[in-house]
């Protein structure tokens, strides 16, 4: 008898985020809004610790909250830059 296998799927959002280190001023709003995705490193610069630690909405809000537009949000499927708006 073949046992039913349990297939686990991990929900991955449609947004990918990147931090432009040279623009980061350590305001920390990204970490406050999406702590599962962003953390400040030992230099106080925001880094991406996980792409799926928070929802897409929270990732986008974190990017929008950055006072220097240091976070770039890209739609994984289309490749379109969602934020900052071009």
């Amino acid at each position: 008898m073949v046992e039913d296998s349990v297939v686990q799927t991990k929900q991955i959002g449609k947004y990918k985020v990147e931090v432009i280190r040279s623009k980061c001023i350590s305001a920390g709003s990204c970490e406050a809004i999406a702590p599962g995705v962003f953390a400040l490193d030992e230099e106080g610069i925001a880094t991406v610790i996980s792409q799926d630690g928070n929802s897409d909405d929270e990732k986008l809000l974190a990017a929008q909250s950055c006072p220097t537009d240091a976070i770039v949000v890209t739609d994984i499927e289309t490749g379109e830059q969602v934020w900052p708006k071009a």
Binding site: A27, S29, A32
Partner: peptide
């Protein structure tokens, strides 16, 4: 508005 924000 979104806030409060910042670590300063």
């Amino acid at each position: 508005v979104m806030g409060p924000l910042g670590r300063f």
